[in-house]
Write a protein that binds this DNA or RNA. Structure first.
Lengths: 328, 328
DNA sequence: CTGTTAGCGCTTTCAG
DNA sequence: CTGAAAGCGCTAACAG
C-alpha cells in the first residue's frame, strides 16, 4: 500500500480512502491512485485490514451433518452467494452438540468473520447464541427457528406436513405412522405438530403409538420403523420427517420385505436431488434449498451493513412433489 | 496478551513463547503464565498472529461442483480432519474454470491460509499451480493427478475401470459404450485408458463410436447417451465414468424406455451413499472418499510442517461393489 | 532464561 | 480535500 501511495504521490491515508470509499477524494487523485494500483498490481491484505478493525469480508457457516444432502445443497447455495458478494466462506460442523457448536462459533468469531450463519442445535440458545449476542456478532439462523430476536430463514413445516397427512388419508389410510426428528429442533416440533393437525383435519385419532423418534438420522429411524411395524395394529402408511430418516425407513422396509407402496405407503419431508431414480419414486415435500442459502446470506449481509435493522424471519414455501411412494 | 503478561509478571515475549513453545522457558514461569491465561480467559487473536507472520491454523479447500455427492463426502472428511487438528476450513468453488480457480486460490492465499487443498481444473498448471509455486504456498492436489512435483491424493482409476469392462465382457457383452468425463482431467484420461485396456484384454476392438463425452456432468451425459443409442449398432452395455454422469445415463435410459439391466447393462465409477435404493441397484467402483479427504489433510499438514520433504503421491484403492445393474 | 523493540499492512482519529 | 501518526495484537530478531 505504501508502494501505491508513493507511485500516486499521495499518502496511504488517501489510498485507503479511495479503496474503501470512506471519504470524499478529488477525482483526479482517485484516478491517479487507481492507476497506481493497476501499475503495482496491488492487492489489499485482508488480514491487516481485519486487524485494523475493519471488515474481513468473510462469513462463517456453522452447520451439522455436512454430508446430509439437504445441508449440502444449502452449503453450495451459501458458497455461491457469498463468493458472488466478494466474501469468503469459513465452514464448520457443529455436530448438533451445544458444546462443539459453541467452540466452533467462538473459533469463527475469533477469526473475525463479519457475521455467521448458524443451524442452531438444541441448546444453542444458552450457549452459542448467548455468546454471539453478548459479543454482538451478526448472525442469521438457518433451517431451525428459535424464539429470539435475530434474523432467521427456513421452510414452512407445519402446513406442508399436514398436507402430507391429508394426502395419505384421502387415499384411505387410517393409521399413519410418523418418524419424528431430533428432539428440541423447531423443525421436529413443527412437523410433528403438522402431523397432528393433519390427523385431526381428517377426523383421525392421534395415537402416540404411531409416532416414532428417529433423531433425524438414518440408523435410529431404521430401528424405529422396525419397532413401529412389529407393534400390534401397525400403520398402513408412514411419513418420515427428513431425508436421512427416509433412507432409514426404506432400509427397514426392505429388511422386512414390505413393498412400497403396495404393502405400505410412504411420504416424506425433503427431496433428494435424484429421488426420481429411487425405487419407489418418493412423494415428498421439497425444500427450496437454494433460496434458503441465498436468502440467508442476503439477510446476513444486510445485517452486517446495518446492525440495527429490525430482525426478519423468512419462511419459504416448500413444494409438494407427487410421485409414486404414496400409492396413488 | 498484555493483560496476561502483566498478570503473570512477565513480558509479552515470554507469553508468546510459552504459547507457541518456540523457546525454552523456566518451568515456574510457564506455570504462572498458564495460570494467568486461565484467570484472564485469554484467547489468542488469530488475525494478529497471522499479520505478525505466523501460521493462521487455517487451510483452504478449492474444489468444483460442491453439491456433487462425491466431493460432498470429501468435503465432510476434510472438515472433520482439519477441525480435529485445530485448523479452520475455508471453502471455495472453482467451477473447474482456470480463471475462477486462480482467483479463488489467490483469495485464499491472501487470507493467509497455511496451505491449500485443490482439485485442479484442466488448465490449473498454467494458472493456479504456477501462482502457488511462485509464492511457495503448500498445496496438495485432490482427486486429479498432474505431472508436477507436489503432493497428490486420489484413486486408482485405470485398473478398476478395466475391471468394470472385464466384468461386463465376461457376461457376454461385446459392444460396451463408455461415457467419458471432462476433457483434460487426469481422471477422465485414466478411466478412458482403463476402458481401452479392458477391451483389449478381452479381445474386443476399440470402436471410437462407442465412446461419448459427458463433460463429467449430468446433462451432457444424458444427451450423449441418446446419441450413442440412436447410432447404428448401439452398445448392449454402458459404463459411466463418474456419478453425475451416471444420473444422466439413467435419465436417458428411462426416456427411451430401456430397462436396466434387461435391455442394457450398466456399470459406473463412483458410488452413491444410498445407491442401494436406486432402481436398479448400481454396480460400481466406490472411491474411498473419507480416506481421500483425511489423507489429503494429513499430507498438507505434514508439508506445512516441513516444506522441504519429498512430495508424496498417494493412490488409494477403490472398491468394486457388485449389485444388479450389470445384469449378472 | 527473559525482556526491549521493531515491525506485519491497514484504518482512522485528529489536524491542517 | 489531504496527511501524520497512533494503534489493532502478535512474533521474532537482538540484546542482555
Amino acid at each position: 500500500m505504501a508502494d501505491v501511495a508513493r507511485a500516486a504521490g499521495v499518502s496511504t491515508t488517501t489510498v485507503s480512502h479511495v479503496l474503501n470509499g470512506t471519504r470524499r477524494v478529488n477525482e483526479k487523485t482517485v484516478a491517479r491512485v487507481h492507476a497506481a494500483i493497476e501499475r503495482t498490481g496491488y492487492r489489499p491484505n485482508t488480514i491487516a485490514r481485519a486487524l485494523a478493525g475493519a471488515r474481513t469480508q468473510s462469513v462463517g457457516l456453522a452447520i451439522s451433518g455436512i454430508s446430509n444432502p439437504y445441508f449440502m445443497d444449502v452449503i453450495a447455495a451459501v458458497e455461491a452467494e457469498t463468493s458472488a458478494n466478494g466474501h469468503t466462506l469459513l465452514l464448520g460442523d457443529t455436530h448438533d452438540e451445544p458444546q462443539k457448536e459453541l467452540q466452533m462459533v467462538q473459533e469463527l468469531v475469533r477469526r473475525r468473520v463479519d457475521g455467521l450463519l448458524l443451524a442452531p442445535s438444541p441448546g444453542a440458545e444458552a450457549n452459542a447464541l448467548r455468546y454471539l449476542s453478548t459479543h454482538s456478532v451478526p448472525v442469521v439462523l438457518l433451517d431451525r427457528f428459535l424464539p429470539v430476536e435475530v434474523d432467521q430463514v427456513g421452510t414452512e413445516n407445519e402446513e406442508p406436513t399436514a398436507q402430507l397427512v391429508s394426502h395419505l388419508a384421502e387415499h384411505g389410510h387410517r393409521r399413519i405412522g410418523f418418524i419424528a426428528g431430533l428432539n428440541g429442533l423447531s423443525t421436529t416440533e413443527e412437523r410433528l405438530s403438522g402431523y397432528r393437525i393433519g390427523l385431526q383435519r381428517n377426523g383421525l385419532p392421534v395415537d402416540e403409538a404411531l409416532i416414532a423418534y428417529g433423531a433425524s438420522q438414518h440408523e435410529p429411524a431404521r430401528t424405529a420403523v422396525h419397532r413401529l411395524l412389529n407393534a400390534e395394529n401397525p400403520p398402513s402408511a408412514l411419513i418420515a420427517a427428513n431425508n436421512s430418516m427416509t433412507i432409514g425407513v426404506l432400509h427397514a422396509l426392505r429388511e422386512i420385505g414390505a413393498r412400497v407402496p403396495r404393502d405400505i405407503a410412504l411420504a416424506a419431508f425433503d427431496d433428494f436431488e435424484w429421488s426420481d431414480l429411487f425405487h419407489p419414486r418418493l412423494t415428498v415435500i421439497a425444500q427450496p434449498t437454494n433460496k434458503i442459502g441465498a436468502e440467508a446470506v442476503r439477510l446476513l449481509l444486510a445485517r452486517i451493513d446495518d446492525p440495527n435493522r429490525p430482525p426478519h424471519c423468512v419462511r419459504l414455501e416448500p413444494r409438494f412433489v407427487h410421485r409414486e411412494s404414496c400409492g396413488c
